[in-house]
């Protein structure tokens, strides 16, 4: 598969791949190969340097090819290696099950989290996973080993939809549990009380965490492109509402825009990166945003 093609792999195509590991590798390798050909070289994650071997260094890290050419023992050193603990916080509430095309928000979020975990561990970051709905459902502490990546991806593979969304309890719990400063990546549709979210973000910042929010939305949740008279059922509460799509669209879009503005404004004030992404878009944009935020943190 050519790198150029991989870079633009659509979520609908990724959904056909079996196994999140293959999916994550496909996405990330393709993405990185693309970056080398892209104008954004300054963000290369594989920047490495050599230093002279000192006793106690792992012999496996000696670059034997350089030794063969120069007769010098040089050890490969990765910048930022194991410096960052990336907490991938994934919303698994029932509303994440919505889909207007072949990929639901939860599936898309899983692809994204898997790719981020793969990328993080590839960079020697420790990646952890927290699944929540109205409470924390599962937690995997951050580690950087490939075996941990497998564990993490297995958890994602077995993921099922939970109940309603609440930011209050689970996000504060995460902030309390993670004493060491880290990189919190929240992947959610944010369809809950925005005040709770903002409070949680404030808590993260108070605890010294960098926070990146991936706001995952179905394209229909942005456009609300319904026309008929229909009875809309809330996936989380089961409540039904009789609406005429065409006349409800404007009100929906206004309310949604107001909601999004409020989140953006709060993120701006709390120096939190906010990225809205729809499930019909390729993942590379999200990865780029992640690296950009990760890079800022390092500097």
């Amino acid at each position: 598969m050519s790198s150029a093609a991989t870079r633009f792999i659509l979520p609908q195509v990724l959904a056909r791949l079996s196994g999140l590991e293959l999916l994550a590798r496909t996405v990330v390798e393709g993405f990185i190969a693309g970056l080398h050909r892209s104008p954004y070289k300054g963000f290369s994650v594989d920047f490495m340097q050599y230093r002279p071997y000192v006793p106690g260094d792992d012999l496996r890290r000696v670059d034997w090819k350089v030794y063969a050419r120069t007769d010098r023992f040089l050890v490969k050193e990765f910048e930022g290696e194991t410096n960052t603990r990336v907490h991938l916080v994934l919303d698994a509430s029932r509303s994440m099950g919505y889909r207007s095309h072949s990929v639901s928000k939860l599936e898309y979020a899983c692809y994204l989290v898997a790719s981020l975990a793969y990328l993080a561990i590839r960079q020697r970051d420790a990646a952890g996973l927290v699944l929540f709905d109205d409470d924390i459902r599962e937690t995997l502490s951050p580690r950087s080993s490939k075996g941990h990546l497998h564990t993490l991806l297995t958890s994602l593979s077995n993921l099922s939809l939970g109940t309603g969304t609440s930011f209050d309890k689970p996000l504060h719990a995460i902030a309390d549990q993670q004493q060491r400063r880290g990189f919190i990546v929240l992947v959610s549709d944010l369809l809950s009380d925005p005040d709770q979210l903002i409070e949680a973000l404030r808590h993260f910042r108070f605890s010294g965490h960098e926070v990146l929010i991936f706001h995952i939305l179905d394209p229909q949740e942005v456009a609300f492109d319904f026309d008929d008279v229909m009875r809309i059922r809330d996936l989380e509460t089961g409540t039904r509402l009789l609406v005429e799509g065409s006349s409800a669209r404007k009100l929906y879009q206004e309310n949604f825009s107001r909601f999004q503005k409020r989140i953006r404004r709060a993120c701006g004030l709390l120096r939190t990166d906010y990225i809205m992404i729809t499930t019909d878009r390729p993942l590379d944009g999200a990865l780029f945003q992640y690296l950009s935020a990760r890079s800022r943190r390092r500097t």
Binding site: L191, M230, R231, L235, L251
Partner: peptide, 24 residues
């Protein structure tokens, strides 16, 4: 009326019946 599952009703309001009848 067709039932459509949707992620959340937090941005919606019910359409008045009169408007729905006119539409029909």
């Amino acid at each position: 009326a067709r039932e459509v599952p949707f992620s959340s009703l937090m941005f919606l309001q019910a359409t008045p019946m009169e408007r729905i009848r006119r539409r029909r």
